[in-house]
Design a protein around this nucleic acid. Structure first.
Length: 269
DNA sequence: CCCGGAACCTGAAGGC
DNA sequence: TGCCTTCAGGTTCCGG
């Protein structure tokens, strides 16, 4: 599922295909993909616009347009963007197609049909709802401690709350807590300063490593080339059904606040 | 404020 | 083998 490292990879790898290109056509194959406006208005606002840049905010991908407007996408569980020369084979489960002035087609592929896109006047509409970006210099251990302060919810739930930190989802939260050696059920406010420091260090290690691997292809994540990411092969606990930890103990799946959670009871206290 | 649950979706996995 | 049921997951919204 696209989390911060996957959306960052999509942004990085899609950019050379779209930067400076003008949108010549938009096809919406499933109306519910477009939010807050009609597919017709969405199309008419995009056709003829040049794409100046791409931004990632948390798990959101934002296209900057030459008229100062933007449109945003959220891949939710199974969305991916494929860039193809026009006559190439077409992926399945396509919900929207963008044609560019050099003939490139950008396909929104989404088997679960949860992905959404919408027009955005000001990027603040997106960033105002999000906590800090975890990979910035400003995101220190002290800031993390501040964000966790007073929260009685399990640390796993707090880490995936986009209001607390932007971009961490279910699978990376599991990997981060394994790396930090913290039981996912621990109350956030009960963590010591040293333990918060370990989580902070794990965030700063796991997310860049996943970006270097071009994301993790579990479920339906693909890069714009159609290739898979490689980070899933580095997972220690996430989605490791019936696996054994390096300590010799079993990886266990539990449910934390309704989310499937993998961890090692022996290594995570 | 905090929490739980439903809704949105449908391919895949599991049960019989 | 094949049919049927259940599950997973991010976000939003509603209700207690």
């Amino acid at each position: 599922m696209p989390e911060l490292p996957e959306v960052e990879t999509i942004k990085n790898e899609l950019l050379p295909h779209v930067k400076g290109r003008t949108i010549t056509d938009v096809e919406i194959r499933r109306d519910s993909t477009v939010r807050d406006t009609t597919p017709e208005e969405f199309k008419s606002c995009l056709i003829g616009r040049r794409i100046e840049n791409l931004e990632r905010h948390g798990k959101y991908l934002v296209f900057d347009l030459d008229n100062g407007g933007h449109f945003a996408m959220h891949m939710k569980l199974s969305g991916s963007l494929w860039a193809k020369a026009s006559e190439d084979e077409v992926p399945d489960y396509v919900k929207a197609v963008f044609t560019l002035d050099d003939g490139t087609k950008i396909f929104l592929r989404d088997p679960r049909a949860f992905a959404r896109m919408w027009l955005v006047d000001n990027v603040c509409e997106i960033t105002d709802k999000l906590g800090p970006e975890p990979l910035t210099k400003e995101f220190t251990s002290e800031i993390l401690a501040e964000r966790l302060k007073g929260k009685n919810a399990p640390i796993k739930s707090v880490l995936i709350d986009q209001v607390v930190i932007a971009g961490i989802g279910n699978m990376y939260a599991d990997e981060i807590l394994y790396d930090a050696g913290i039981d996912p059920r621990r109350a956030a406010r009960g963590l010591s300063k040293e333990e918060v420091g370990r989580i902070h260090k794990a965030i700063k290690r796991i997310l860049p490593q996943a970006i270097a691997s071009k994301g993790a292809s579990v479920q339906d994540y693909f890069r714009p080339s159609g290739e898979e990411g490689m980070e899933q092969f580095n997972f220690k606990v996430a989605h490791q059904k019936k696996a054994t930890c390096s300590c010799g103990g079993p990886i266990v799946r539990i449910v934390v606040r309704g989310r499937g959670t993998y961890y090692c009871p022996n290594c995570q206290k």
